[in-house]
Design a protein around this nucleic acid. Structure first.
Length: 300
DNA sequence: TGCCAGGGGTTCA
DNA sequence: TGAACCCCTGGC
């Protein structure tokens, strides 16, 4: 007899080597992953997405009105993936609140399956330090090389060996020269090792940041070398679930100038505008606009 | 073929 | 405030 549970209005059914989220709305892996919030996923030939996180490898695919998650079970879903995919949040209600904004309506129509992931803080911090003045394919390659070199093997899935992201302790002990040589992260090498050291030594506590308000948490994150305003805002949004955080990169800058502000302004002004305009869900609005704007090259 | 600009920013002067 | 920064890719 296959087990079936309900979690917050979502019906989850145990299937062979995985689970099915039945009739689930606002959840499409092809909107969630290519949006630059995560870097440890890959597209398979059958257009499903394989993800490495929390020392596990899972595979997701939208099939009709369901989302199929392979290589997992009900326990992992309730303990890990429910939070990871931000399933306690009512995206239907958020979309209703954002209605009336013409640009956002177009963006939500385009990327309606987006969700803001709640990723592991250390991995998110390091990957966004690597993202500075970098490009997504290269970031993904570097992060994979870090995992292969310093992380433990998670075994084979779909013919490939996968590796966990290493701990701060392991990365703190790595030599800067070796990190540069192996992972191709260039001048970001020292920032990655030094940040790992600050965490491994206990000088900065990533767990404590969960108890801070957004402004305080942002200041704390900016203590790390390689973390400026943009990287801090990304970590707040994608790891700590501060959905009022509004990261402004070159794309968001262009998109906001083109669709809303109608004149060139500084990144800081764009950030202030976004938070003022979209309030406590600014980060989610940012994700819809980013996906829509980048895929359609708005402002470029 | 080979050169050059530019990229999900941050740091240092 | 502005240049420099690793490395890689796409455009010419």
């Amino acid at each position: 007899m296959l087990k079936c549970i309900w979690v917050n209005k979502v019906k989850i059914i145990e299937i062979e080597n995985g689970i099915a989220l039945r009739d689930i709305e606002h959840f499409d892996p092809s909107h969630i992953f290519p949006n630059g919030q995560a870097f440890r996923w890959s597209v398979e030939e059958d257009e499903s997405y394989t993800l490495v996180a929390h020392n596990r490898v899972i595979n997701l695919k939208r099939v009709g009105t369901d989302v199929i998650i392979d290589n997992t079970n009900l326990d992992d879903f309730t303990e890990i993936w429910y939070d990871y995919f931000d399933l306690s949040r009512d995206y239907g209600e958020i979309k209703t609140r954002l209605k009336g904004d013409v640009e956002l309506e177009k963006a939500m129509e385009y990327g309606g399956g987006l969700r803001v992931l709640k990723q592991e803080p250390f991995e998110t911090l390091i990957t966004f330090i690597i993202s500075a003045n970098n490009q997504i394919p290269r970031i993904m390659k570097s992060v994979e090389l870090i995992a292969q070199t310093y992380g433990k093997s998670l075994g084979f899935y779909r013919g490939r060996e996968h590796f966990a992201f290493p701990s701060p302790e392991v990365l703190a002990k790595a030599s800067v020269e070796e990190v540069r040589e192996i992972t191709r992260i260039g001048f970001r090498d020292k920032r990655v090792v030094d940040t790992s050291e600050l965490i491994a030594s206990g000088e900065v506590d990533l767990v404590k940041i969960f108890d801070m308000d957004r402004v305080e948490a942002r200041e704390e994150l900016m203590k790390f070398p390689g973390v400026g305003e943009k990287v801090a805002d990304c970590v707040l949004l994608f790891a700590y679930n501060f959905v009022d955080s509004f990261p402004v990169d070159v794309w968001v800058n262009r998109i906001m100038e083109t669709l809303y502000i109608k004149e060139p302004v500084s990144k800081k002004e764009v950030g202030d505008y976004g938070r003022r305009q979209f309030g406590d869900i600014a980060g989610i609005a940012q994700q819809y606009l980013f996906f829509y704007g980048r895929e359609n090259k708005i402002g470029k």
